[in-house]
Computed example of a mutant assay.
Amino acid sequence: METESSRHPTIRGVYALADTSLLAGAELIARVEAALRGGAAVVQYRDKSVDSARRLTEAQALRALCARHGATFIVNDDVDLALSVGADGVHLGRDDPAPALARVRLGPRALIGATCYDRLELAPAALGAGADHVAFGRFFPSSTKPGQIYASLDLLRAARASLSCPIVCIGGIRADNAAPLVAAGADALAVGNALFGPGVDSEAAARALAALWKR
C-alpha cells in the first residue's frame, strides 16, 4: 500500500461514484472501503444536499479512506469542500464553477475534471480553461441521469485519437457492458449503481471492473 507522501493521484481504472442518493452515513463509508479493497482507484464524493456539516464529515472520512488505500479522492461540483478536506481534485459539470476558477482555488497539482457529455468539441475548451481530464457519457441507460443524451463508441474513439488527457466514461456502466469502452480507449470507468446499488457486493463488483484492464 502506498503511503500518503508517496501517492501520485491519477485518473485511471475503476472510478467509484460515492453518491449519497444511493447510500449515506456509515453504509457509504463501508461500501466505499469494500470497493477500494476490490480495486477501485478513484472515488468521487457526490452529494447534492445543503447539509454542510454532514457533507464535510463524509468527505473527510472518504478522503482518509482513499489515502489509506492509495486511491485518488475527487469531490463533485464543490470546490470549497474539495479545498477544505484536501481532496486530490474536483469534477465539474456545465452548471458548476469554471475549470479556470477551480484551478486558481485548488492550485497547479489538483486534478480537475470536466464533463463533456456527448460533445467532443467541449473537451479542448475545458482543457484550455484548466481541466486536466474529461468525462463523456452517458454510454448506457442510467437511473441516476435518465434524461441525458447518449454518447457513442465512435465519439470515444474520436476523443482518444485527438486527446492526450485521461478520458472517463460514465452512465450505466457495469462489468458486463464496459469492455468495449476500455477497448476504445477509456482510461477510467465511472460507476455508481453497479458498485453501490441495493444488494451489490461492492468489493466483488469493483474487482470485476478492475479486471477489464488486465485482459
Results as ranks from 00 to 15, higher is better:
97 P>I: 09
153 L>H: 10
53 A>G: 03
113 G>W: 09
198 P>I: 04
107 G>F: 10
11 I>V: 15
36 L>F: 13
27 E>A: 13
183 A>C: 02
24 A>W: 11
60 Q>C: 13
6 S>V: 11
54 R>F: 03
153 L>F: 01
210 A>G: 13
108 P>F: 01
173 I>W: 00
124 P>V: 04
139 F>G: 12
142 S>T: 15
98 A>T: 13
181 L>M: 06
169 C>V: 10
45 Y>H: 09
61 A>R: 15
162 S>W: 00
168 V>C: 03
56 L>P: 02
18 A>P: 09
189 L>W: 00
23 L>M: 15
140 F>M: 12
130 G>S: 11
3 T>G: 15
81 L>I: 04
187 D>W: 07
46 R>Y: 01
183 A>D: 12
9 P>S: 05
168 V>G: 01
83 L>Y: 06
71 A>T: 03
4 E>K: 13
151 A>Y: 03
102 A>T: 15
26 A>K: 15
174 R>W: 02
70 G>A: 10
9 P>D: 08
66 C>L: 11
215 R>K: 12
47 D>Y: 00
2 E>D: 06
14 V>F: 04
63 R>E: 08
127 L>F: 15
98 A>D: 15
152 S>W: 08
68 R>N: 11
40 A>Y: 06
200 V>P: 06
189 L>C: 03
127 L>D: 14
142 S>V: 12
175 A>I: 00
189 L>A: 01
16 A>P: 09
34 A>Y: 00
165 C>Y: 05
121 E>H: 14
101 L>Y: 09
118 D>L: 04
159 A>H: 09
149 I>D: 09
122 L>H: 14
165 C>T: 10
94 R>A: 15
165 C>K: 03
121 E>Q: 15
146 P>M: 04
32 V>C: 12
88 D>T: 12
42 V>H: 01
43 V>D: 02
145 K>S: 03
42 V>C: 06
208 A>P: 02
202 S>G: 05
191 V>P: 03
12 R>Y: 14
111 L>N: 02
113 G>P: 14
31 R>W: 11
87 A>C: 05
197 G>Q: 08
194 A>D: 14
11 I>S: 08
158 A>I: 00
71 A>K: 04
184 A>N: 01
133 H>E: 13
64 A>R: 15
38 G>F: 11
7 R>K: 14
26 A>N: 13
169 C>Q: 05
156 L>W: 00
27 E>R: 12
191 V>G: 04
142 S>G: 08
136 F>N: 09
56 L>Q: 14
128 G>H: 11
110 A>I: 04
115 T>R: 07
96 D>A: 07
130 G>Y: 10
149 I>H: 13
136 F>C: 02
